[in-house]
Design a protein around this nucleic acid. Structure first.
Lengths: 339, 339
DNA sequence: AATAGTTACTAAATCGTTTTAGTTTATCTT
DNA sequence: AAGATAAACTAAAACGATTTAGTAACTATT
C-alpha cells in the first residue's frame, strides 16, 4: 500500500541508500541492481515522496502562477497551456489570484518565496506600481518570468505583446478605413501594456497628422463588456462625435458595440470599432469584431521555455541571461471596420 | 534570512520543541513564553516549512483542483473564487487541466494521490465514463468534492446545478413565448450535466404535449461559439424548420445567433434562442441573449465549505456525511426570446 | 518531612528522502 | 603475498518540523 525506499529496500535485501542511488542512476550501483530496483518499483507503482525529497534537495518541482484574475480570456488561455506543459514536465503548478490588488500580489509573492517554489510565473496586477517584490524574487534565486502585464523597469524575464506596435497597427487600420476622429477606451493607468497601447494609438494619430483630443480618451478600470457599454454611453451623451473607436480589449469593444447597436448607430458605417486580443467570441458578434491577434497559442510554451532555460543555467552554474520575448501581432479585419 | 524552529529556539534560549508547541498553542507552555515566541516570529516573518511539516503530520495544506479546461467562463469564475477563498484559509491550490480527456484525468488523480494532497476538487472531463478513480480517492481518505460536471453513480460530495430543472425552465420559457418547434444543441454524450439538460428539454416538450423530433437534436462536442455557428448552419441547410433553440451553453447560442443574423433570420421573431449559464458577454450581444443563471458567485464558497466540513469531520473522527448541494436557477429573459 | 501532583519545559525519535563517508570483497600490481 | 585499486555496496547524518516520553523545579497534601 504505502511504499517508501525503506520498504523497497527490505523487500529487495538492499539498503535504502542503494535503492535511492539506483533510482537516481548513480554510477556506484551495479547494472543488475538498478534493473532489479527499477522493475520492482514499476510493479508496485512507487513514487517518491516529494516533501521528503524537498527537505534534502530544496527542489520542489513546483512553480507558482500568479494571475490578476482567471476569467480574462487571454489569461485563461495562457494558463491552460502552462498547466498542460508543466504537467508533462512533471512540475506542479500552484495557482493564485491577486484580484488585481498590489497588496495581495505582494503577499502571495512573499508566501511563495517562503515556501521555496522553484519559480514564479506572473502577470502583474493592474494596480501594481512598486516592483520591490520582483527584486526580492530575484535576490532569492527564485526564477521569475513575467508575462502579458509586465514591468519595464525591472530587468527580468518577460514574455509579452508588442503592445505599442499592435495598437499602432490597430489604429492605422481604422485610419486606413477612413476614420479620422478616433476615440480610445484605454486600460488602467499603471500597467505597462495599457500605457503602451495608448502610446501606440497616439503615435498612429501623430504619423497621420490627425489631431489628438483628450476628450476622446476614456479610462476603463475593469475592462469588461459592462464597462464598454457604459463608456460608450458616456461618449454618446456628451455628444462627442467620433467615427472610430479603438478599445483596450475585445470585451470593452463588444460592450460598446452593443450600446451603439441599441442606439441605431451603424457599425461600421457611422463608427468603426477595433478590439484587441482576438478573443473566442469576437468573430461571432454582430457585426463581427475587428481586432488584433497575437499568437497567444505559443505564449504558454514560450513562457515555460524561458523558465526551463533559467533553471538549466542555474543547474549548470552558467551565467544567467535575462530573456525578453516579444510576440508578433496581426490585425484581423472583420465587419466592424470594413465599410 | 532563513528561519527555522532551531534558529528561533537558539535565539530565545528555548528548545525547538518548546517553540513548536508555543506556535501550536499547546497547554504545557506558559503564556509568557507563547507571547515571546509569537512576537519574535512575527518580527522575523517566520513561516513553517510546509514540506517538513508534512513529513510528520501528513497534512500538506494543499488541495488539487482538476479542471477539464480553464477557458470556460463558468469554470474560470468558480476557479477564481476557490483560489481566493483557499488563499485566505492558508491552503495552497495545485491546479491541473485534464483537457477533457479521461486518461489525463485519471493520471492526474493518481499523481495527486501519491503526492498526498489533502483534497481533490474536480469538475469531470466530458469524456469520463468510468469512475474507478473517484473510488480510489475516497478509499485513500482524500477528501473529494465534485462540481459542475459530476458523477451521479458515485456517492461523494457534489456541488452542482439542477441541470434538469434549469433546462426545463429554459425550454418552458421558450414555449411560454410561443415556440412549438424547439431545437436543442446538446452537450457531449457522457457527462451528467449534458444528459440532464437534454432530459429537462424533453420533459418540457412532454408536459406541453409538444412532439419530440430527434432531427432537432444536434450534438455539440466542444461547446464553443464556432460549433454553435456550424450546427446552426447544419440545421439551416437541412431546412429543418424551427421557431426556438435551446443550447447547452451561451457560447453555442451566441455562435448560432451569429449565423442566423448573417442569414437574415430574425431573432426572436423567426427563431427565439435560449442559452445556459449567463456568461458575462450574454447581456451584450445583439440581440442580447436570454439564458439561465445559477448563483455561480456562491458556488466557489459552497465547494470550499463542503471541503472544510469533511476535513473537520475527519479531524474530529466523526462519521463522514456526503453532501450534495444543488444550486438554484433563474431564467434571465432578454431580447433573444421576447417578441 | 516525605510523597504526590503540577507546571513548564527538554531530549530524542520520527517522517522519507539524499548524500557523505566509510566498508567489504574481489581484482590487480609488483 | 602484501599493498593498492576498484566495484558495489552500507551506515548514518541531514533536512525542519511534530510529538512522545521524560525530567527538573515548584507547590500542595498529609
Amino acid at each position: 500500500m504505502k511504499s517508501s525506499l525503506k520498504q523497497i529496500a527490505s523487500e529487495l535485501n538492499l539498503s535504502t541508500a542503494a535503492v535511492s542511488k539506483a533510482l537516481n542512476d548513480y554510477p556506484d550501483i551495479s547494472k543488475n541492481t538498478k534493473k532489479r530496483v527499477n522493475t520492482y518499483v514499476k510493479k508496485i507503482g512507487y513514487q517518491p515522496n516529494t516533501h521528503a525529497r524537498f527537505l534534502r534537495t530544496k527542489k520542489s518541482q513546483t512553480i507558482a502562477l500568479i494571475l490578476p484574475n482567471t476569467t480574462d480570456s487571454l489569461l485563461s488561455t495562457i494558463a491552460e497551456d502552462i498547466l498542460v506543459k508543466a504537467e508533462y514536465l512533471g512540475y506542479n503548478i500552484l495557482v493564485s489570484c491577486s484580484k488585481e490588488s498590489e497588496e495581495i500580489e505582494k503577499r502571495l509573492v512573499n508566501r511563495f518565496l517562503q515556501q521555496k517554489v522553484d519559480g514564479i510565473i506572473m502577470s502583474l496586477s493592474s494596480t501594481t506600481s512598486d516592483y520591490s517584490h520582483l527584486v526580492d524574487i530575484q535576490s532569492n534565486t527564485t526564477t521569475l518570468v513575467l508575462f502579458n502585464t509586465t514591468a519595464r523597469t525591472v530587468n527580468c524575464n518577460r514574455v509579452y505583446l508588442n503592445d505599442k506596435e499592435a495598437a499602432l497597427n490597430a489604429t492605422n487600420h481604422l485610419i486606413a478605413n477612413g476614420c479620422s476622429q478616433i476615440a480610445h477606451f484605454r486600460g488602467p493607468l499603471t500597467p505597462q501594456n495599457s500605457i503602451d497601447r495608448y502610446l501606440g494609438y497616439r503615435e498612429a494619430l501623430n504619423s497621420s497628422k490627425l489631431p489628438f483630443d483628450s476628450e476622446k480618451i476614456l479610462l476603463a478600470e475593469k475592462g469588461n463588456a459592462e464597462e464598454g457599454y457604459t463608456l460608450a454611453k458616456t461618449l454618446y451623451n456628451k455628444k462627442i462625435t467620433i467615427d472610430g473607436l479603438f478599445c483596450f480589449n475585445d470585451a470593452l469593444a463588444l460592450g460598446a458595440m452593443r450600446f451603439f447597436n441599441e442606439k441605431g448607430v451603424k457599425i461600421p458605417k457611422d463608427i468603426s470599432i477595433m478590439g484587441f486580443g482576438n478573443s473566442n467570441i469576437s468573430a461571432y458578434s454582430s457585426p463581427s469584431l475587428s481586432t488584433v491577434d497575437h499568437e497567444i497559442s505559443t505564449m504558454g510554451a514560450k513562457i515555460m521555455e524561458v523558465f526551463l532555460d533559467e533553471e538549466q543555467s542555474k543547474k549548470e552554474n552558467e551565467e544567467i541571461v535575462v530573456k525578453k520575448i516579444l510576440l508578433k501581432n496581426k490585425v484581423i479585419a472583420r465587419e466592424s471596420t470594413l465599410k
